[in-house]
Structure formats: C-alpha cells, structure tokens
Amino acid sequence: MGVVCEPATESGYRARPAVLLLNAGLIHRVGPSRLYVRLARALAAQGFLTMRFDLSGRGDSDARPGVQSTAMDSLADVQAAMDLLEQSKNVSRFIVAGVCSGAVAAAEAARVDRRIAGAVLISAYAYPTVQSRIRHYLRRLGKPKRWWNTLAGRNELGRALRRALFVRGGVANEGEMTDDTTGARSRQAAAVMFREMIARGVCLFVIHPGGDAYNYRRQFEDAFSDVNFEDKLAVEYVPQADHTFTRLLNQQRLQDAIVGWARSRFQIRVNETPDPAPESPPTPFGLRAAAESSR
C-alpha cells in the first residue's frame, strides 16, 4: 500500500525522476517521526513525484507468499512500485531513498534496476576505518576510570584497541561492519555494489548521523577509498542526529539536504518557480494505493 504525492502541475515532473521512499525497519510508510511525509511533500513541492509505500509485511502491506528472503521481497516490491508509476504516471526514471534497512533496500534495487538514476542512503553503510576507531576509542578513553583497565587490556575496549592497532591501511577488516542491523553487505561486497552502481551512472547521496558507528565527515570516502565514485557521490554528515533523525532540527536538516541534492543533481534551475500546493481532490491510484497532493 502506498501514497503518491504529486506535484501541483504535471509540467516537468515526467522529465525528473520520481522518488520512492522505502520503510525504515518496521516503521510504516510515514517514516520515523513522520519524516517521509514531510520529505515527500517537500520534494513534490519542488516538482518531484514521490511515493511512500509499505514493503511486504510492513505497515498496510501483506507479506508476500512463499519463502523468499526479505531482500528478494523488497527488491520485487520496489520494482513493482516502479512498474506501477511507469504505467500510471508515465515516469521512467527513479530515485530510491530510505533510512536504515530502507537504505539497504534502495541500494540493492539501484544495483540491479536500470531505471534507477539516484539513491539516497540514510543511516546505513557505516564501516569502520582506522580514524573512526581511534576517534571512537579516544572518546571512550575520555573517562579516566577506564584508563587502567583499558591499557591492561582487561576490558572490551582495551581488547578492541589492540585489535584496531593491527588494522592495516585506511580500510577496516574486510567483512566487518559496525552498524549491521540493516542487513547490509560486507564492506568488500558493498564496494563491488557501489562500483556497479557508479558504472551505470547512478548518483549516490549518503547521509550519516552521529554516533559510534560513524564519527567523522569523510568516513564513508575513507572506508571506500578503493571505489572511484567519479563525480557521483555526495556525503552529508549530521553528527547531532540519532539513527532515525528524531529531533526536529535534524529532520529539517535532512529534508533540506535531500531536496537540495535532488534539485542540483537532476537539473532543476535555481530560479525555477516551484509548483504551488495544489487544491485538487485526491484520486484513487492503482489498486491498493491512495493519492495525495503535495501538502
């Protein structure tokens, strides 16, 4: 089940990619703290047709029959959503975006489906680097009580620090990921995936909140120093934000960043007048979706 947020006028939106917002974990299509609703409306106000919908087994959508993996189900769902908008709205290019597991579903779809021109990956793909480990341990060592046990290697921190000192180069151990609740790939496999996406021309916008898993601005570029992103990568780091951007100021910052990225990447002129908020009544969309205006 999904909700389509349409720009007020049809002029131009078919020339731009439509945006699909994918569930953050088990949270239904409105997103964490209703973040996807405000984001969908902000993007529609800038001329991007946007659809937030529930992947199988989440929100208002039934689980898919059979025993496919969640990843396969999610890919099939994203492709079904693109099919629907292609047929009913005549759009042919898409941006996929999501928080946490939604980012992973977005990346996996962008890897294989040629209709996807952009991917916004929020709070996922955080891999440790030498610098992130040092920052992490220094932060924790700010508490003097921990020094003795740490230096003696008697606690987990001390043992981890010793392990970290044996990491070579700028990249963490292959296969290791600090934020593995998303079902994302190992770093090595993710690097392969990103290379495939870049080769196909997909523009990537990676957004990381603060916390232990990601703790400095260039961590993503350092973790993937072996991937040539050409000019297709943008990274935003919001150190004050939590995993789901709960605080309102962080929600606003996220919204501004994504709208700005979409406008700049997909050639919306700065002086172009945004579509005004429409007054048209809602119309049924598809078999199991409802449509709304951009506000």
């Binding site: 964490p32 703290s33 209703r34 909140p209 603060g210 916390g211 150190p239 004050q240 934000a241 939590d242 789901t244 709960t246 605080r247 309102l248 929600q251």
Partner: peptide, 21 residues
C-alpha cells in the same frame, strides 16, 4: 543515550516530543 550537544537546554527540548512538534 543519543548523540548531540550536551547541556540541559539541548537535552530537554520543550517544543518537541520524541520527534513530533
């Protein structure tokens, strides 16, 4: 338990409640 600036004002926003205005 979350990242962000320290201090009572930053920790206790009065005009929002767990993600909602």
């Amino acid at each position: 338990t979350k990242p962000g600036p320290s201090g009572a004002a930053a920790r206790e926003p009065r005009d929002e409640l767990i993600g909602f205005p």
